[in-house]
Design a binder for these strands. Structure first.
Lengths: 361, 361
DNA sequence: TCAAGATGATAATTCGTATTATCATCTTGA
DNA sequence: TCAAGATGATAATACGAATTATCATCTTGA
C-alpha cells in the first residue's frame, strides 16, 4: 500500500485554480482510520497503546490498525503531538555574542557541550537565539520582540549578563537559568555557577602552605559576579597585608616584586600570558622568581610551555546541570535552582615555594 | 500587565485532581482577544498585518490589540504556526553527530560560523535538531518522525548524508540545503559545496609543472561525494600512469616510493600526519624525498612544523551561502540551488620539484 | 425611505493528535 | 424477559494559530 493510494481518497483543497500541485501529503491518523475502517480516535488509542480502564480496543481491531500503520509507515507528526501535549520541548540558548565566534577562541563551547548533551537526553531541541542583532558588540535579550518566548525556557550564557534583562525575565516569569552565578535582580536568579569563592581561597591557602607571605591580587573584583567571587575568596584566605591592583599596567609587576610580593593571583586567567611575557622580558623565571596563580583556567592554554597553577571550571557540567535545572523549573519539580559546582584545583607548574632569600625567618 | 492577571480569567482544566500544577501557560491569542475585547480571529489578522481586500480592521481596534500584545509580550507558538503551515523564521541545523563535540576538534565549527552569521543577518534563529537520539554513532533525520518540520527549513551538515534521508526530504518537500555537494536522490539536491574537482585537478597540474611524473592518489574515491570529486579531479589532470591506492597501510608508502612515485595526493587531508610519521621513521624528508599534497585542508593543523600543500575549503562561506540558498528556497526566489564554491590553492611547503636524480631526462 | 454598497468584526473550519464523555450493542443474571 | 453491567468504538473537544465565509451595522444615493 503506497502513499499514492492514500492521496486518491484524500481531501482535495476545494479544487480551486491551478494550485493543484498538492503532491504528497503526510500520512495522518485520519488516513489510517479510513484504511482500517475505524475512527481517528481509535487509531490514536491504538498508537498510544492505551490500556486504561475505560479504554478498550478489540485485539482484532487493534491488529487491523497496526497493520495499516505498518504498511503506510505512518509516523505521528511531532508538531501536532507536541501541540496537544502543550510541551514544545524547545530550549532556548541565549548568548550575548555569536555562539560560533570566528576570531577569538570559543568561550561558550565547553558549556554548550554539556547543554547539548543534556538536551539530547531530554529529547529537546536547542533554539539558538541568533536573531537578535548584535548591537554595540552584544545581543539584547528583549531586542527581538520576545523571540525568547519561542522556547519553553532558556539558558543564558555570558560572562556578564545585563541586570535589567534578568529583572525583566523574572518579572515576566520566563523560565530561565543562568550559567554562572548572578546576584539577585528583583528576585532570586536561577543559576548553575562555579564556586569561585571556595576555589580561590583554596589556591591562596596552597600558596601560604608553600611559604608565601606577600600576595597580590590583580583584577578589579567587580563587574561580573565571577570576578567579585574570586576577590571574595582571595580576601577570605589571604593575610591582611595582601596587595590589590586593578590591572596589569607597565611597571605594575616590577613594583610588586620590588615590594617583596612573591605570588600574584590573576582574576583573569588570560593575564597569565602578560605575566609570562613580562617575566621573559626581565629574564625572570616562573615560578622560581615569582609564583603565578590563575583564578580559573584559560579556555585555551595560554602557551604551550606554561601550565598555570589554578583551578578548573567545570564548564561542561555547568551546561549540563543548567539544562537539568531548567527542565525542573519547567516541570515544576524545581528543588535547587541555585547551584554552585566545585572547581578542581589544578597543580600546574607556576606555583612553588618562594626563593629562599625571601623565605620567612 | 502580568501573566498572573491573565491566569485569573483563564480557563481552568476542568478542575480535576492534583494536576493543577500546570501553572505557567503561554499567552495565547485567546488571551489577547479577551484582554482587548475582540475575537481570536481579529488578533490573528492584526498580528499578520493582513491588509487584503476583504480584511478590514479599524485603526482603533488594531491599536488596542497591538497594545495588549506589547504588554503581554505575546509571541505565537511556533508549533501551532507550523501546523498551520506558516513560518517562524527558524532555520534548522541538522548534523549527524553532536554539534558541539567534546573530544575531537570541531569539524562543523567553521561552517556554523557562516551559518550563524547569515542567520543573524536574516533575523532567523537556529534550531539545533539535537533531540534525535544518536543511534549507532549518528543521528537520523527522520528517526524522530520529522521533528525537523519545527523549522521553516533546514541546513544539513555532514561528510556523508544518508541517501534515504535526502530522498525523503525531497519527497516530503521539506525545504533544505546540504552543505557539500550531493548526488541526486530521487531529485536534484539543493547544495552549497566546494569545487573539489577543479581544486584537485589544479594541485595535480601544479605537481606536473614542478616536474613530477609519477603520482599516486591515496583514498577510496567513494563514499562521500567529496571523496569521489577529489578522485575525479585527480584523474582528469593526472597522467594515465598515476597509481591509486585505497588507503595507507604498512608498507604502502615504501612500495610507492620504491616504484618511483615522487608525489602522493591524499584524499583525506588528515592522512598528512600518517605520511609525516612514516617519513620521520624512514629518515626521509618532505618534500625533498617525497612531495605530499593534501586534497583539502585539515580542520586543525596536523602538526606545527608541517604546512601541507593543498587547498582551502571555504567553509565559512559555504555555511553562509547555504543559509542564503535556504532563504531563497523559502521565499520562492530560488535561482541557483546548486552551488560549487571555488577553493583557494594553498602553497604550503610539502610540494617541491622531485629530487634531481629522478627528474625526467 | 429603502435598497445597495461599504465597513468591521466574528463564527466556523483547518492543520494532526490526544483525551474524555457518550453511545450503541451484547452478555448476563434474576 | 428485561434491567444491569460489560464491551467496543466513536463523537466531541482541546491544543494554538490562520483563513474564509458570513453576518451585523452604518452610509450612501435615488
Amino acid at each position: 500500500m503506497t502513499i499514492d493510494r492514500l492521496a486518491d481518497t484524500h481531501y482535495q483543497p476545494t479544487e480551486k485554480g491551478p494550485e493543484v500541485s498538492r503532491t504528497r501529503r503526510r500520512v495522518t491518523q485520519r488516513d489510517i482510520a479510513r484504511l482500517s475502517g475505524v475512527s481517528q480516535a481509535t487509531v490514536s488509542l491504538v498508537l498510544n497503546n492505551r490500556l486504561d480502564a475505560g479504554v478498550r480496543i478489540a485485539p482484532e481491531t487493534r491488529e487491523r490498525v497496526m497493520r495499516a500503520i505498518r504498511e503506510t509507515g505512518y509516523v505521528a507528526d511531532p508538531l501536532a503531538r507536541r501541540l496537544a501535549d502543550r510541551n514544545n520541548r524547545i530550549l532556548g540558548v541565549f548568548t550575548y555574542e555569536p555562539v560560533f565566534p570566528s576570531g577569538t577562541r570559543d568561550f561558550y563551547h565547553p558549556f554548550l557541550v554539556g547543554i547539548e548533551e543534556n538536551a539530547e537526553r531530554l529529547c529537546c531541541d536547542l533554539l539558538l537565539l541568533t536573531s537578535a542583532p548584535v548591537q554595540d558588540g552584544r545581543r539584547r535579550v528583549f531586542a527581538d520582540g520576545g523571540r525568547i518566548r519561542l522556547a519553553d525556557g532558556c539558558v543564558l550564557l555570558g560572562r556578564d549578563i545585563d541586570r535589567d534583562d534578568l529583572a525583566r525575565l523574572i518579572e515576566e516569569e520566563i523560565p530561565f537559568v543562568s550559567v554562572g552565578r548572578r546576584d539577585d535582580a528583583g528576585g532570586p536568579v536561577p543559576y548553575v555557577g562555579a564556586d569561585y569563592v571556595t576555589a580561590s581561597a583554596a589556591t591562596v591557602r596552597r600558596a601560604l602552605d608553600a611559604g608565601h607571605r606577600d600576595l597580590a591580587y590583580i583584577g578589579r573584583g567587580e563587574g561580573p559576579e565571577s570576578y567579585a567571587d574570586r576577590l571574595r575568596g582571595f580576601e577570605s584566605a589571604a593575610p591582611e597585608t595582601a596587595r590589590r591592583l586593578p590591572a596589569i599596567e607597565p611597571g605594575t609587576l616590577d613594583r610588586l616584586t620590588a615590594e617583596g610580593v612573591t605570588a600574584v593571583f590573576l582574576e583573569e586567567p588570560a593575564d597569565v600570558a602578560a605575566v609570562s611575557a613580562w617575566a621573559a622580558e626581565r629574564g625572570l623565571r616562573i615560578p622560581a622568581d615569582l609564583s603565578v596563580v590563575a583564578l580559573g583556567d584559560p579556555t585555551r592554554p595560554v602557551s604551550i610551555d606554561l601550565d598555570a597553577t589554578g583551578f578548573t571550571i567545570p564548564r561542561r557540567d555547568m551546561g549540563l546541570q543548567a539544562v537539568e535545572v531548567l527542565d525542573a523549573l519547567l516541570e515544576g519539580t524545581e528543588t535547587r535552582a541555585q547551584r554552585l559546582l566545585p572547581c578542581e584545583l589544578h597543580d600546574g607548574s607556576t606555583l612553588a615555594p618562594p626563593s629562599t632569600g625571601r623565605l620567612p625567618r
